[in-house]
């Protein structure tokens, strides 16, 4: 039984170009997106997306707005440089991978390694996220990536984190794992900060991570980031902010400096 791949159906609705992605292979879908953007289209609406990978990968366009209805496949907006992407549905592994600039707004949940090595831009996920989210996130000069999650995160959140900000709000909790974040939290962190809207058990912290009191500038950052997040999902920012946050930061910028020795050294 063969399941034939289809050609994408394209139509127009106000200023949106609407693409029906049902059964369309990702190569064709992404070529189409790139072509439309090159022709000057700035607003795209993708319908019936189900698992197509690499949507908007490497897309350099700061005024592009792409709506995705369905499940965005792996590596959504990887290496992207500028576009705004709104997903009405879930995202699969690696959304925002090594993203340089832009914005991903996800109304559903995300799975693993969301925001991997992200260098700039923003990712807002309304639901829960999986393992190793924000792994090796970093900042560079004035670029400071921000990732805000409305629900909870799995293990290894912010692993190797070298810069940027992660905020986990824990507005909804999982039945099986009510904690706001999993084990080995921020393990290997050597830059950046994670804010969790709850208490954090000390022995959930990974190697090289510690908790710290929030400063004024932390509060300022939170009200800005959470404010933006809330306006994306029509939430009351004041209510969300009115809670205790825990801040997780690196103990040192070189956590493993003592691990190695030169055989000649005494």
């Amino acid at each position: 039984m063969e399941i034939p791949l289809r050609k994408a159906r394209v139509s127009r609705e106000d200023e949106f170009v609407v693409i029906d992605a049902k059964g369309v292979h990702y190569r064709e879908l992404n070529e189409l997106i790139n072509e439309l953007v090159e022709r000057g289209e700035r607003k795209l609406r993708l319908l019936n997306v189900n698992g197509q990978r690499y949507i908007a990968d490497g897309l350099r366009c700061s005024d592009c707005y792409i709506e995705i209805h369905g499940v965005a496949g792996d590596d959504l907006a990887a290496f992207a440089n500028g576009p705004t992407i709104v997903v009405y549905g879930d995202v699969q592994d690696g959304a925002g991978n090594t993203m340089n600039a832009g914005r991903i707004i996800v109304h559903g949940n995300g799975t693993d390694i969301i925001g991997h090595s992200m260098r700039g831009g923003e990712i807002f996920v309304r639901g829960h996220v999986g393992y190793r989210v924000g792994i090796h996130m970093k900042e560079y000069r004035e670029q400071v990536p921000v990732l805000v999650v409305g629900g909870t995160a799995g293990d290894f959140l912010g692993e190797y984190m070298a810069g940027g900000r992660i905020v986990i709000l824990g507005l909804e909790r999982l039945e099986t794992y009510p904690e706001i974040a999993g084990e080995w939290l921020a393990t290997g962190i050597h830059g950046g900060a994670i804010y969790l809207r709850d208490e954090v058990d000390e022995d959930k912290l990974g190697y090289g991570a510690k908790t710290e009191r929030l400063s004024h500038s932390d509060r300022r950052f939170l009200s800005e980031a959470v404010g933006k997040f809330c306006s994306c999902f029509s939430l009351n920012a004041e209510e969300v902010l009115n809670a205790e946050f825990t801040k997780v930061v690196p103990k040192s910028h070189r956590p493993f400096a003592e691990m190695y020795s030169d055989s000649k050294e005494g």
Binding site: N50, G51, Q52, G70, V71, G73, D74, D90, Q92, T111
Partner: peptide
């Protein structure tokens, strides 16, 4: 392996 396969 992927959510999309189930939704399909």
């Amino acid at each position: 392996s992927e959510e999309a396969a189930i939704r399909e």
